[in-house]
Computed example of a mutant assay.
Amino acid sequence: MAPPRNRRPGFSRRAQYGLFIGYVGAIGGALIGAGLLLLSTFNPSAFSTVRGAISEITTPIASSLAWVRRSVSGVPEGIGSYFAVRGENARLKKQVADDARVVTRARTLDQENRRLRALLQLREVAPERVVIARLVNSSSSSTRRYATLNAGAWQGVQRGQPVREAAGLIGQVVETSPNTARVLLIVDAESIVPVRRTSDGLPAIASGRGDGLIDIRSASVAAQGFKPGDSFVTSGTGGIFSPDIPVARVVRTTGDVAIAVPSANPDALDFALVQRAFLPDPVTAPSPSPAPGAPAAAP
């Protein structure tokens, strides 16, 4: 069926107004274009002025529309960049944590390597060595201070032998079993070590306090004062500890008693060197047996 020839919009006011405005806009645009064409032909300078004024009006609008277009088009890229940066950040954080663990492990190994090197050097110059053993544990939270070695009688460890490391004296073996030994630390309240001051050889007694520190008392009849910084080493008196093993350093004084820190901290050690006693127990000579045929002594 052919469309009706009457194209009037009917009784719709909105359609009629829309059609009217469209016609007016078309006619107005044609007139403006014709006027601009005539102006550019007969008066180019005036046309340039009009064109500049139109550019001043349209340029901000065009710039705003271009910014909106770039912003909208950049949204997907920004979202992708956000997730990419977030993933990269998580990867870098994990890498930093892994590197921190590696660095911590390397520092621990370096410290252990230094201690072992020092013990090896000490072993070369200490002919009275028995064995190098690991300090399994130490009772740092108790007033009685003991440590356990993972070497015992089967490795030659005996009761009374001194235990030390490169930095100084640790203690003395008090109990042994086939593969373990118990060590009385020099910071224990029952520990007593004869020492001497390195500066002048003043004899003194180092006794533990049970709190990780050591009391130093003069063994000389004449009163001798101590001062912070005084260092003490074993004197060899008593025949247990060999001379010149570092024991403690004074940090403060209280009257005739000096309070010192031990040269070797057993809580921070992994290995220790067990030495033989400085003066071994004397061997009792056997009594001579009577010669055969000799007359018995008269009662």
Rank of each mutant, 00 (worst) to 15 (best):
F83Y: 14
P127Q: 08
P60T: 03
P203C: 02
A264P: 01
I205F: 05
A222C: 01
W67E: 00
T58Q: 11
G33C: 08
A189M: 11
R14W: 06
L213C: 12
S140A: 12
F271G: 02
L31C: 07
G238R: 07
S45I: 11
V193K: 00
E165R: 06
R69P: 08
F271L: 09
E128M: 07
A294M: 12
V125W: 00
A258G: 13
A26W: 05
V221M: 13
L65A: 15
A84N: 13
D256K: 07
D110Y: 14
S138G: 07
V72K: 14
S242C: 08
N179L: 07
Q16H: 13
I32Y: 13
L31G: 00
Q172S: 11
R164P: 00
L273I: 05
T104I: 12
D200S: 07
S140Y: 10
I259N: 03
N6Y: 03
S263V: 01
R105E: 15
R144K: 14
S220V: 05
A153S: 09
G212M: 04
A97R: 08
N265C: 06
R182H: 06
D270T: 09
I216Q: 02
R249G: 04
R69T: 12
E165V: 04
L213M: 15
S81G: 01
S199M: 05
A264I: 01
S12K: 04
A181V: 05
E56G: 14
L119K: 00
R114K: 12
P280D: 04
E124T: 01
V50W: 12
I32L: 13
A223C: 02
L31F: 14
T176A: 03
A166R: 00
A296S: 02
P246Y: 00
T237W: 06
I192P: 02
A222R: 13
R51V: 04
V195S: 01
I186K: 01
R51Y: 14
T198K: 00
G52A: 15
E112M: 04
G35Y: 10
P280L: 10
V233F: 02
S263W: 01
G25D: 03
S73G: 10
E112A: 12
S287F: 15
G74M: 12
T198Q: 00
L109A: 14
P246Q: 02
L213E: 13
G80W: 09
S220Q: 09
A15P: 06
A97F: 09
R70K: 12
R105S: 15
V173S: 02
N43C: 05
R14A: 15
G22I: 05
R14P: 04
L109P: 03
G225T: 09
Q275K: 04
V257H: 05
R69N: 13
A222D: 04
R91M: 09
A189T: 11
T284A: 08
P3C: 02
S71V: 08
R14M: 05
R105Y: 10
L31N: 02
T104P: 08
K93S: 10
D98H: 05
V283Q: 11
G229M: 02
R8P: 04
V251H: 06
T176F: 03
S139G: 06
I259W: 03
P76S: 11
S81A: 12
